[in-house]
Computed example of a mutant assay.
Amino acid sequence: MILNIIFLFFTIYLLIQSVIEQRSFYKKMRRSIGFRGGKIIYIDKPQEVKEKGVVYGKLLKSHKYGLSGKPDYIYRLGEELIPIELKSSEAEDSPYYKDVMQLVAYFLIIEDVYQKRVKRGRIVYRNTMFEVYNRRHLRKELFNILKQMEKMQEGDYSPEVNSSFALCRFCLCRDTVCEIYKNTSK
């Protein structure tokens, strides 16, 4: 009898876990930036008129993860901190991978700086918005990227690259850890 109850609870737990894992890590939403009842606590730009309790343009540094950055906004909604990243481009059915990884990096930075777990953030494009949830697999992907970047800096790793001036000229790695751009721009 007790084993049947334990088995039933375990089965329910596994079903709930599988449903949670199959949910998308983002939700497409109507384009809006703020939160009803939320308060801005951080803005990535200096202001002439400063509002009390808001941090303006400060570089946020995570010593734990070796990351630093400046999200466009951080809202406080109750006890929750929510980073918002504004993009000048448009997106269709899903957020761009690089933007998701940038937001996940902000999750880590905010968690280290404010000592509070971030549950979600928003990426706002010109035509739409996505709410991105702080999932374990996204954090794991970011940690893998950070490891690769560290190996690239140390010279222990070189990714497979198709050199193309058109593709390389706007790359973030250009003139930092990648030498390809210098060779293609001649």
Score class of each variant (00 low, 15 high):
residue 38 G to Y: 11
residue 39 K to L: 10
residue 59 L to D: 13
residue 16 I to P: 01
residue 91 A to I: 10
residue 159 P to I: 06
residue 107 F to Y: 15
residue 33 I to Y: 08
residue 75 Y to D: 00
residue 85 E to W: 05
residue 4 N to W: 05
residue 159 P to G: 08
residue 150 E to V: 06
residue 107 F to Q: 04
residue 136 R to H: 06
residue 163 S to L: 14
residue 3 L to H: 08
residue 16 I to N: 02
residue 73 Y to E: 03
residue 50 K to L: 15
residue 10 F to M: 07
residue 76 R to K: 14
residue 169 R to C: 05
residue 47 Q to C: 15
residue 135 R to Q: 01
residue 174 R to N: 04
residue 53 G to W: 02
residue 165 F to S: 09
residue 64 K to F: 08
residue 180 I to D: 10
residue 25 F to K: 03
residue 7 F to P: 01
residue 139 R to P: 05
residue 104 V to C: 09
residue 1 M to Y: 06
residue 140 K to G: 07
residue 120 R to Q: 11
residue 168 C to G: 09
residue 95 P to K: 00
residue 180 I to W: 11
residue 41 I to K: 02
residue 102 Q to N: 12
residue 128 T to R: 02
residue 171 C to F: 03
residue 131 E to P: 02
residue 167 L to G: 05
residue 82 I to R: 00
residue 60 L to D: 00
residue 146 L to Q: 05
residue 126 R to L: 06
residue 182 K to M: 10
residue 116 K to N: 14
residue 72 D to Y: 08
residue 95 P to G: 05
residue 7 F to D: 15
residue 7 F to R: 15
residue 3 L to N: 14
residue 168 C to M: 06
residue 108 L to C: 13
residue 54 V to N: 11
residue 86 L to H: 06
residue 94 S to F: 10
residue 100 V to S: 03
residue 31 R to A: 12
residue 151 K to F: 13
residue 84 I to P: 03
residue 149 M to H: 09
residue 101 M to E: 09
residue 120 R to H: 02
residue 157 Y to Q: 11
residue 170 F to K: 07
residue 84 I to N: 03
residue 9 F to W: 01
residue 12 I to P: 09
residue 14 L to F: 13
residue 163 S to E: 14
residue 169 R to F: 06
residue 55 V to G: 04
residue 11 T to S: 15
residue 96 Y to H: 15
residue 139 R to Q: 12
residue 175 D to Q: 06
residue 130 F to A: 01
residue 177 V to Y: 09
residue 184 T to D: 00
residue 57 G to S: 13
residue 86 L to W: 04
residue 45 K to S: 13
residue 76 R to H: 02
residue 105 A to M: 12
residue 3 L to A: 14
residue 137 H to W: 06
residue 111 E to I: 07
residue 11 T to H: 12
residue 86 L to D: 02
residue 15 L to G: 15
residue 54 V to T: 10
residue 180 I to L: 04
residue 7 F to Q: 15
residue 160 E to C: 05
residue 46 P to R: 07
residue 4 N to A: 09
residue 144 N to D: 07
residue 135 R to M: 00
residue 93 D to G: 08
residue 38 G to Q: 10
residue 90 E to C: 08
residue 12 I to M: 09
residue 135 R to Y: 00
residue 36 R to P: 07
residue 49 V to A: 13
residue 179 E to T: 12
residue 183 N to A: 12
residue 134 N to V: 00
residue 139 R to S: 07
residue 108 L to Y: 07
residue 93 D to M: 04
residue 165 F to K: 14
residue 71 P to T: 01
residue 164 S to M: 03
residue 28 K to R: 12
residue 144 N to H: 08
residue 60 L to W: 00
residue 18 S to R: 14
residue 164 S to H: 03
residue 142 L to D: 09
residue 4 N to V: 06
residue 68 S to K: 14
residue 70 K to T: 09
